[in-house]
Amino acid sequence: MLPPGLHIPDGFLSTPISLAAWVIAIVVLALAVRFADRDLDERAVPLMGVMAAFIFAAQMMNFPVAGGTSGHMVGGALAAILLGPWAAIIVLTAVVALQALLFQDGGLVVMGANILNMGIITVLLATLIYRVCRPFALGNAAALGIAFVAAWITVEASAIATALQLAASGTSPLEVVFPAMVSVHALIGIGEGLITAAALGFVLATRPDLVPRPAAATR
């Protein structure tokens, strides 16, 4: 992945910013644990565990874009659309935590910020966009278009949040890091959007029963 990526290592965020991000992440996670437990009951653990492994593995699948860079998924939008927001937040938190623990891809004290950027902002935003727009999409093609846009926006939002945290910590000057992150992730977001839409298209074509439909979209 292109530097600067999204997995912030320790040392790059100031202590107050790291701790503030942890507080937000913990509050949202507490809600997510409660609601996911209620919605999924006893299926929750095997479903979310295997799905987090899936996101992990799907991130391994990359494709060449241009100039030696490759596109791969973050998976926030796909998880939000297929699993619902609460389960998706827990799934992505498990992914972020294991990436930090197994591969030092992301730090420990800054893990709250990484969970916030990649697991919470992406999922909540994708859920919002998909739920608001889905009833207006009549065909599957339009639904895939919405998934593409939702995925692109989540990657951008994640990059913006990372840039703002780096700038607020005094690590990167805002006038440099903001345009850099936004423009690089505008390209990465296209890859994310295309893969998300194609994956959703595949699931809609083979197992449409697995894709939750907002009530208004029944035809």
Partner: peptide
């Protein structure tokens, strides 16, 4: 190419589920 990877991811999702 993104479509090929997307279909792989979709297929992997169904298998994982």
């Amino acid at each position: 190419r993104a479509r090929v990877v997307g279909h792989m991811a979709g297929s992997l999702f169904v298998r994982s589920l």
